[in-house]
Design a protein around this nucleic acid. Structure first.
Length: 813
DNA sequence: AGGTACTTATAGAGT
DNA sequence: ATAAGTACCT
């Protein structure tokens, strides 16, 4: 009876798998490479393999499964739980970054970091780099934060530490050639400063994990023993750091299983090495290779069209993807005059398709190469009242108000976080200006302590001539605020603590007084942030109730913060987002599928992108990206391009993407000729602007075709003396407009300013000296609310100047 | 110190 | 086109 039951359970996991899939599932004891073509049931195989292992007696906590996105991890956990129940809770499964962050926290002191280390987001990295460049008195035009950050990121992803970097003369030569000879030094100081601040950037989560495993053999041994089975999703997108860590972890048991598709390797810009998957068999000679070649997602036409494109790449693993589904409709191609018209065409077609087929809007996606292409489509969808949702990378913590909230929380958790300190010490404005902050920073640098500690001594020690008593009082108030919020962290629940931060910091109040739509949206975002705390807490409480966690494991603010820092837009989806058309980049569409997929902007220099075409590998990666885009479609794929497009604020001609001509003619259809194997000639006029075959520039062509009105380049440059009411109408996106509203309100409320609330220490006719303008005579004094306006006549050709008594550094003569 | 107006870089994908 | 950064003004 028991045996029969066992057989039934076993067959349930393996049921419905094709022979290749089944093979890949049951051979879990040997190192495995599962080459999984698009739509071949990769996730199903991976989750079945894990469930099967557990069923065969492998302890869940001995299994480590790594993914690239939180969404993939969550999806896998749900599926495994459905197969084997709550035991799945004890799997170690998550993104590389979150799993490694946890390992690092457990062992932080071994590599000189506090357990509560902060995770620096890209903005922090760039700000810190700016500071370092300034301190070294280097040319800020040559040492651009973006360049430095990406070079540091690259070095870290290749496991090159500052020491190794400086020791290698070829890096130095490269930097001299790039006019950044001091880069090694900057990299070194940057890392030292991060350590001082108790902070790691995203790449550190990999680099420091490797350092930990390399330098602490006992730690390595512990995790090798723990993680007897290592499974890696999307292996084609792993970088060198991830590759080495996986090797180290799996050295003892060698039971590593990687899943991926070389044809879908699209992350080389972030250091991914397609070589990792191409040479897996060399790295693990005992490895078994399983190929999943049957596509269950798309029609035959789509699979064949995608195959015909990808065969133009030279480097790839041998496989033959096929579909046994319907033949399906051919890929359709749309041509538009302008980017705006492209959006109209696409959205009209989409509306017709959805009407005809009765499809849900959520089965439709618009995929583009770059995020800035989304706007035209948003407009077109909005005009027709079609519901849509748009995914943008990290927009969650890109909002200022969210960053400010996180700044407070970060400083409370880790007072050494100088980047957080600088961000919030004077926000909302509390009279601690740049000069004071610089002074604090100077003290910190001088004593080798954090800014938070520097402030402590500043407040405790007697007032110097440069730091006035008033400033010390303000700084002391700030210290008190952080201290008391710090207490609230331990006294209160997660959500209540968040509320305290939002209110007592003054952030919420600052936005509430500003009665604008922008400020309202900021308040909404803060509330949403607080909601994630509530949710985080509730989930944890449920786990404790279900006995999946100990009573003591209540949700902490540290855990919440880490999850937020490693979160993207996609992980933050709510139920109201259903039944909507999806707009996203091709990159973020990886792993997803839709009945109808529109791939837009198929133009040279856009898709493939200009930068990618500079190297052959880059072009191949763009082609893989296009392959990914095509294979998202279940029923139909539609492509489009525009002959003209707004770029950097003006209209430019564009040409058909070469990828269009790479699709086998049998699978693509258009109302016009698709240019094959010919690059159109490019001509230029005497000003160097590109012109078409009739000698017209894009702007001229557009004017001819549409009698286009140019909003931004009117023929009459003269500005109207009075504002045109039609133009002044509420411009919601204009921050200027927002400010103007804010100001006019304040003036109204402030009604009658009290005159001369303070006595004036100057008199008309008095002689004074100004540090810049030299000696002068006071000609006129006007009383203000809390200050006096002085009109002073200076010599030395400076003439009359209007100064404020409080701020002008005048000395009486 | 804080606000406004002008200048500049930006737009390649994201944990 | 637009956000962010800088210089100048009150």
């Amino acid at each position: 009876m028991l045996v029969l039951l066992w057989r039934m359970m076993e067959s349930q996991i393996l049921q419905g798998l094709n022979p290749a899939q089944r093979d890949a599932v049951v051979n879990y004891d040997s190192p495995s490479l599962i080459v999984a073509g698009a739509g071949s049931g990769k996730t199903r195989v991976l989750t079945s393999r894990i469930a099967y292992m557990i069923e065969q007696g492998v302890a869940p906590h001995n299994i480590l499964a790594l993914t690239f996105t939180n969404k993939a991890a969550e999806q896998m956990r749900t599926r495994i739980e459905a197969m084997i129940g709550p035991r799945s809770r004890y799997l170690r499964m998550g993104t590389f970054h979150s799993v490694f962050a946890r390992i690092l926290r457990e062992n932080a002191e071994r590599i000189g970091f506090p357990e509560s280390f902060t995770i620096y987001e890209p903005t922090d990295v760039k700000n810190l780099l700016k500071t370092v460049v300034k301190e070294l008195n280097l040319d800020e035009d040559k040492y651009k934060p973006n360049l430095l950050a990406s070079r540091i990121s690259y070095a870290k992803n290749c496991l090159v530490t500052p020491g190794a970097y400086i020791a290698n003369p070829s890096y130095g030569a490269e930097d001299r050639q790039k006019q950044i000879p001091e880069f090694g030094n900057i990299y070194n100081i940057y890392c030292a400063r991060c350590k001082q601040n108790g902070a790691m950037d995203f790449d550190d989560l990999l680099l420091q994990t490797n350092i930990l495993l390399k330098d602490c053999p006992d730690v390595l041994a512990k995790y090798q023993e723990l993680f007897q089975y290592v499974l890696v999703d999307e292996y084609q997108d792993t970088n060198f750091a991830q590759y080495v860590i996986i090797r180290r972890l799996s050295q003892l048991h060698s039971r590593v299983c990687v899943v991926g598709d070389d044809a879908q390797s699209i992350y080389s810009f972030r250091g991914a090495k397609i070589e990792n998957i191409l040479s897996f068999k060399r790295d693990y000679p005992a490895a078994k290779v399983f190929k999943l070649e049957q596509n269950y997602r798309s029609t035959q036409t789509i699979v064949e069209a995608a195959n015909s494109v990808i065969k133009h790449n030279s480097r790839q693993m041998e496989k033959k993807c096929f579909s046994e589904g319907a033949k399906g409709a051919p890929v359709r191609l749309f041509r538009a005059y302008t980017d705006r018209e492209e959006a109209e065409l696409v959205v009209n077609d989409m509306r017709d398709k959805v009407r005809q087929n009765g499809t849900d809007w959520n089965e439709v996606a618009i995929l583009y190469r770059t995020n800035n292409q989304s706007k035209a489509f948003e407009d077109a969808l909005r005009r027709r009242g079609i519901p849509y949702r748009i995914y943008k990378g990290n927009s969650f913590y890109d909002h200022k108000e969210v960053k400010d909230m996180l700044g407070y929380i970060r400083l409370i958790i880790n007072p050494r976080d100088d980047e957080a300190f600088k961000r919030i010490v004077n926000y909302p404005a509390r009279g601690i200006g740049d000069t004071t902050v610089q002074r604090i920073e100077a003290i910190a640098r001088q004593r080798g302590v954090s800014m938070w500690e520097a402030v402590d001594t500043l407040v405790a020690e007697p007032v110097t001539d440069t730091v006035t008593r008033a400033i010390v009082r303000k700084v002391a108030e700030f210290v008190e605020l952080i201290r008391s919020l710090s207490l609230a962290r331990t006294d209160k629940g997660l959500y209540e603590f968040g509320e305290e931060v939002a209110t007592r910091s003054g952030i919420l109040a600052a936005y509430r007084v500003e009665n604008t739509p922008e400020a309202q949206s900021a308040v909404d975002n803060i509330e949403e942030l607080l909601n994630t705390m509530q949710l985080f807490n509730e989930q944890r409480e449920a786990e404790i109730r279900n006995g999946e966690r100990e009573e003591s494991e209540v949700a902490t603010i540290e855990e919440w913060l880490q999850s937020v820092m490693l979160m993207t837009d996609m992980d933050n989806e709510d139920e109201q987002e259903q039944h909507k058309v999806t707009l996203m980049t091709v990159h973020s569409a990886k792993g997803l599928e839709y009945e109808f997929v529109y791939i837009v902007g198929l133009e040279e220099n856009l898709f493939p992108s200009q930068r990618a075409m500079e190297t052959p590998d880059g072009l191949e990666e763009e082609r893989r990206l296009f392959y990914v885009a095509l294979t998202r479609a279940k029923c139909e794929a539609m492509l489009s391009y525009a002959e003209m497009r707004f770029k950097w604020g003006n209209m430019e001609f564009s040409q058909q993407s070469r990828f269009l001509s790479e699709i086998d003619e049998a699978y693509i259809e258009a109302d016009f000729e698709i240019k094959r194997n010919s690059r159109p000639m490019q001509s230029f006029n005497e000003s160097g602007n590109r012109v078409n075959s009739e000698g017209r520039t894009a702007v001229e062509e557009l004017r001819k075709r549409f009698d286009y009105r140019f909003k931004n380049k009117p023929q009459e440059p003269a500005k109207p003396s009075r504002p045109n009411p039609a133009i002044v109408e509420p411009v919601r996106t204009s921050t200027d407009g927002m400010r103007r509203l804010g100001i006019s309100r304040k003036v109204e409320e402030g009604a009658t300013p009290p005159k001369a609330a303070v006595p004036c220490s100057y008199a008309v006719g008095e002689r004074v000296e100004h540090p810049k303008f030299g000696a002068g005579v006071i000609r006129h004094i006007e009383a203000l609310a809390t200050d006096h306006k002085l009109i002073v006549e200076f010599g030395g050709g400076y003439g009359e100047k209007t100064l404020l008594a409080k701020f002008a550094k005048l000395t009486k003569l």
